[in-house]
Write a protein that binds this DNA or RNA. Sequence first.
DNA 1: TGTCCTAAAAATGTATACATCTTATGTTGA
DNA 2: TCAACATAAGATGTATACATTTTTAGGACA
Lengths: 240, 240
Amino acid sequence: MPDILLDPDEQPTAPTRSLSVTDRIRAAILAGEFEPGARLHEVRLTEWLGVSRTPVRSALQALAAEGLLEYTPNRGFSVRRFLTSEIVDAYEIRAMLESLAARLAAERGLNADERAIIEQALADGDALLAKDELSEDDRIAYGAVNFAFHDTIHTASRCRMLGEMVRLCQRVPQSSHRNVVSFELMDVRRRHDDHHRIYDAILMSEGHRAEMLMREHVASVKTSLVRALSGRPTPTRYRR
Amino acid sequence: MPDILLDPDEQPTAPTRSLSVTDRIRAAILAGEFEPGARLHEVRLTEWLGVSRTPVRSALQALAAEGLLEYTPNRGFSVRRFLTSEIVDAYEIRAMLESLAARLAAERGLNADERAIIEQALADGDALLAKDELSEDDRIAYGAVNFAFHDTIHTASRCRMLGEMVRLCQRVPQSSHRNVVSFELMDVRRRHDDHHRIYDAILMSEGHRAEMLMREHVASVKTSLVRALSGRPTPTRYRR
DNA sequence: TGTCCTAAAAATGTATACATCTTATGTTGA
DNA sequence: TCAACATAAGATGTATACATTTTTAGGACA
């Protein structure tokens, strides 16, 4: 019984009940408030959320289409089980999709706005990572920087479908890996350096190089994730 | 007003009205029965389909999640417009996704069933393409062969998300390109030969080679499509 | 004790009435 | 004539009653 759903003061985040209910159930799933495989009974959700079955059903359908729930006719919705291997594989897919986005961005070029956003993200990252240690706030701030960089490249690929699919890859429950992947400072610095090189390649219209750099960039996150999940230590290199 | 929706004898294809209505509306959209950008009014669909608004709304939501419709709160659903560039780009994405699937299949290996299906598909294709000319039935038969080959590789990648995303790439309206892409016999033969090589690479666990072959294999469809759309003729090479 | 059958309970599927929002229409005012 | 507003019509959003299916519970029988 997720506490997140019981707050009566919560303001609607979306124009319709269906959409705001979708957001709340999605948040609960991604936060791990439901057991994997658990059935989501419409009437219970109805009671928790204080709305009728109509918007609840609407939300469940939407979440099933997103891949967070599984649907069986006449048998309802249940939380989709994600194997660790599926979470890891999602990074393989992202590596392919984002490397394509980088190549297309290089081939098709950035506009002034996009260049400005990325350059700001690179500068902000440089400033953050100049510190000797990252606070929790710093990590959150770097997360925003990282998002801005990748999201802008998706936009610059001029390919709506790509961005949508990357988003699908990221919508995976068991957010444990999100925390796990908040890595060593060394790793973050290296990845930020990747960003610089990728941007260079895009600016120089070096499509193939941008693709390869981005592929390795995302794949390295997979590697870190696998290492973290298997409990092995981060290898030490020229640490200050 | 699509005729396809007016046949009262049509048998339900799915266990619930919602699902069968989803199938029928999807088919109508993919067949181009609705103008791109056209609003899909719930009550009209209700009349055409002979069901209440509940399953219609359910279907529209599902199709919006598939990317075939666009949804605006309080303003309903409309047929998503697909630019030609988006249809072409979908092949770029497919090339990345399917090449990943081929590599994973090579790395993870095929089971006996999968080997049998692919070998049957290759043999059937060999037999079909031995003819001097393909009838319409032959083309349909080869389409099934082609599907079996690709679908089995998706399965063998052991990565559910990959198959789902490829399916998203293929669900695109304006099926004109489907017809356009039913190419010259020469092209089909070459692509079938690709299938042989890709299978060889997978059997030999040559992941990188399988990936590269598949990437070019799918990309070549994009090239043919672009050529067909631009009205240029198919280049002639050593034609018998 | 275990299996099978039957009936009740509960869950999902569907239809429909009502609420809310959008859009169209037409009137008023300058 | 045109803009702005008011109203009505129509469309979507929501709640709820009813239908159908699934699940559960209990008992008969071997």
